[in-house]
Simulated assay, not measured.
Amino acid sequence: MIVLVVTACPAGLRGDLTKWLAEISPGVFVGRPTARIRDLLWERTVELSKDGRALLVYSSNNEQGMEFRTHRHDWKPTDFDGLALMVRPDKRQSTRRTGWSSARRMRSSRR
């Protein structure tokens, strides 16, 4: 079983995916293709998505019973001791400033 979610992708890609999968909600496709067809659909999705994003979740023979693939997503699948978890990068960390806040500096200057 696979679940394929596409966001901000051309309508032609969605139409192409409906040949093999059922669209249960706008941009959400489910189906049960073979592994070969799944891989070909993923290659086609990556090729046609242009500036859009795609996320694929499919059944696998591991402890979780599933695996992930992403294309142009902020969230990345990461292996934590054998478990595949989706990790979102912390954007606040890159913009974090060091030192005192401006409110703290104002309070200090009043004294």
Rank of each mutant, 00 (worst) to 15 (best):
F68N: 02
L21K: 03
G52Y: 12
D81A: 13
R92K: 14
H71Q: 08
A54Y: 01
K50M: 12
V57Y: 04
L83D: 10
R72I: 06
S102D: 12
V6Y: 06
D79M: 14
V6M: 07
V5T: 07
R111E: 13
V57W: 02
P26A: 07
H71G: 08
E43M: 00
I2S: 00
D16E: 13
A103H: 10
M66N: 09
I37N: 09
R105C: 09
I2D: 02
S59A: 07
R92I: 09
V57G: 02
S101P: 06
L17M: 10
T70I: 14
T78Y: 01
R97C: 04
A103L: 13
R111H: 14
L85H: 11
V5R: 06
L41E: 05
T34P: 05
A103G: 10
R92Q: 14
A84T: 15
H73V: 09
S25T: 01
M1A: 14
S25V: 00
G27V: 06
W20I: 04
F29R: 10
M66S: 12
V5E: 05
T98S: 15
R36H: 11
R14C: 04
E23R: 00
V5A: 14
L4V: 03
L48S: 04
F80M: 07
M106K: 10
Y58Q: 08
R96Q: 15
V28H: 06
S102Y: 09
R44E: 11
T98G: 14
A22R: 00
L55G: 07
W75A: 07
G15V: 10
S101W: 06
K91G: 08
R72M: 06
D16P: 02
V87T: 14
V57T: 05
V30L: 10
W42I: 07
K19Y: 05
S25M: 01
S60E: 09
V3E: 08
D81S: 12
W20P: 01
R88T: 13
P10H: 11
W75T: 04
G82S: 13
G52A: 12
W42R: 09
M106H: 04
F68D: 02
P77Y: 05
R104A: 15
M66F: 15
L85W: 13
T7F: 06
R88A: 10
G52H: 12
S101R: 06
R110T: 13
L83T: 08
G31W: 00
L4S: 01
C9Y: 08
L13D: 07
S60R: 03
L17C: 05
L83C: 07
L85F: 14
P33V: 02
H71D: 11
G82C: 13
